[in-house]
């Protein structure tokens, strides 16, 4: 016999069982258009600094240290991404004429000023990605500690000369308070909820720009153990579908491409990314855009 309360459903009602955002079906919304093309290709690069001392509070980030201390293997292999892989990404983006978002730990901005400068001079957008890879959030963190983490991130990035209006949580993990704390800290949009394919608003005004986790290099290559070519093929298949859907419905679509320097920036994988960019760049439907530009377009049409 289960506790009788287990068969009570206090939130069984029209709409969601929470108050964070309202239900809406994508195909029924007023059509969106982009400044160029019909499929916004939003490349989002995670710039991550993994301290060799993981704190595990509230949880250990994906990609963090794995062996007993000192884990030289993972500390250095992750840092390879910031030292080498990220620069390969910048070159590839430049060749394709693409601008992107760089979700940046404050610690990366502090430790690698040349990289930060190259991101900015390349016309890319910096969005906040916590302090470092110990800066994880979930419901066990506590509201005060979470507020402190979000404002510390904002302030440390500001000290490096960047004032992002977007936020990506580590592992897209939030508490029930995160959306309110992000608005309180002055953020305009976040990228954590993967329940949609276009920007939409939370009830508190925060915009969610969905960063599809299933299309990330981490999911397809590291978790599902597919090849870089299989990852690129999946992205092309997604683009083809979205372009056709945009044409059929007269409503713009978005393809998020979430990549990680220590994964897709390796020498034997980078060519697959470069080929993908070249193929997308050749498509008339493609609009390479940082998250902020996509949000701008959404907001402008929301006001109409």
């Amino acid at each position: 016999m289960l506790d009788p309360a287990y068969l009570h459903y206090p939130h069984r009602r029209h709409g969601y069982d929470h108050d964070l955002y309202d239900w809406s079906a994508l195909h029924q919304r007023p059509p969106l258009t982009w400044p160029k093309g019909s499929v916004a290709v939003w490349i989002c690069v995670s710039l991550e600094y993994f301290p060799i001392l993981p704190t595990d509070k509230p949880f250990r980030a994906p990609g963090h240290m794995q062996t007993a201390y000192p884990d030289f293997r993972h500390y250095t292999a992750r840092d390879y991404g910031n030292r080498i892989g990220a620069w390969r990404f910048l070159e590839a983006l430049s060749t394709a004429g693409a601008t992107a978002s760089f979700a940046t730990n404050a610690a990366v901005a502090e430790r690698l000023p040349d990289l930060l400068a190259a991101v900015q001079t390349g016309g890319h957008e910096v969005i906040a990605h916590s302090t470092d890879m110990n800066g994880t959030i979930d419901a066990t963190l506590g509201q005060d500690a979470e507020r402190a983490l979000i404002t510390e991130t904002r302030d440390r990035l500001a000290d490096c000369g960047v004032q992002p209006d977007g936020w990506l949580s580590i592992a897209r993990s939030q508490s029930f308070h995160t959306a309110d704390l992000l608005v309180e800290a002055g953020y305009r949009y976040a990228c954590d909820w993967v329940n949609d394919e276009l920007p939409y608003r939370f009830r508190n005004g925060l915009i969610n720009l969905p960063l599809n986790h299933e299309l990330s290099d981490r999911q397809i290559i590291t978790v599902q153990q597919q090849s870089a070519d299989s990852w690129a093929q999946s992205l092309e298949d997604a683009f083809d579908w979205l372009a056709a859907e945009a044409a059929a419905t007269n409503c713009a679509r978005m393809l998020p491409i979430h990549i990680t320097p220590y994964i897709m920036g390796l020498p034997y994988r980078i060519a697959a990314f470069e080929r993908l960019l070249a193929r997308l760049a050749a498509r008339s439907e493609c609009w390479f855009a940082p998250g902020g530009a996509i949000v701008d377009a959404f907001v402008a049409q929301e006001a109409e």
Binding site: A139, D192, W193, N195, D196
Partner: peptide, 28 residues
């Protein structure tokens, strides 16, 4: 609510990716 034999989510609630992923069905 918790069930004595099985956790609904692997992460503390809200499991943003787990919940959001499934919500994709009902929006898109």
């Amino acid at each position: 609510p918790p069930h004595p034999r099985r956790k609904a989510w692997t992460r503390p609630h809200p499991d943003v990716v787990g919940y959001g992923h499934r919500d994709h069905s009902n929006r898109v």
